[in-house]
């Protein structure tokens, strides 16, 4: 920096803490990142389920009851929505990170995978289908 010029007084404000509230684009980014919070709830349910499975049938039935409680169902519906929002963003970013095929084709194939896996779970657990 030229020291002879002492009228220079560059002004750099501190980076604002609430930067992510300033633009809609940033809000959606934070929403994307926040999808992992409900995800952690569902993972906890699964770990609790594994624990119950290891403790015998009566504990397993308690876990099934737990999963049917209204607040648990409500949180899981939220988690489902979060996972689908995550999927949308993730599928759209993937072709930009690894451009293997036309983006629209890559996105469609990824959604197909999600639908096939979901179908698999439903068929596996709901033999009535």
């Amino acid at each position: 920096m030229p020291s002879h010029n002492n009228s220079r007084r560059p002004y750099l404000p501190a980076f604002r803490r609430d930067w992510w509230l300033q633009l809609r684009f940033y809000q959606l980014y934070m929403l994307r990142e926040a999808t992992v919070l409900p995800l952690l709830f569902f993972i906890s349910c699964l770990i609790y389920g594994l624990y119950s499975l290891s403790q015998g049938e009566s504990q397993w039935l308690k876990w099934l009851d737990f999963m049917a409680r209204p607040w648990v169902v409500a949180l899981n519906v939220l988690t489902l929505a979060a996972s689908l929002f995550h999927a949308k963003t993730f599928f759209e970013l993937f072709p930009r990170v690894m451009p293997l095929a036309p983006p629209s084709l890559m996105i469609a194939v990824q959604w197909l995978a999600t639908v096939v896996v979901a179908g698999g779970f439903v068929v596996l657990l709901g033999a009535w289908v």
Binding site: F42, M67, T79, L80, S83, A87, F90, F121
Partner: peptide, 19 residues
């Protein structure tokens, strides 16, 4: 990838359709 491909189906079955 798992969160996007596996988790939706798992929640749908165990967390929503079953209850």
């Amino acid at each position: 990838v798992c969160f996007a491909v596996v988790i939706p189906g798992a929640i749908l079955a165990v967390g929503v359709l079953y209850p």
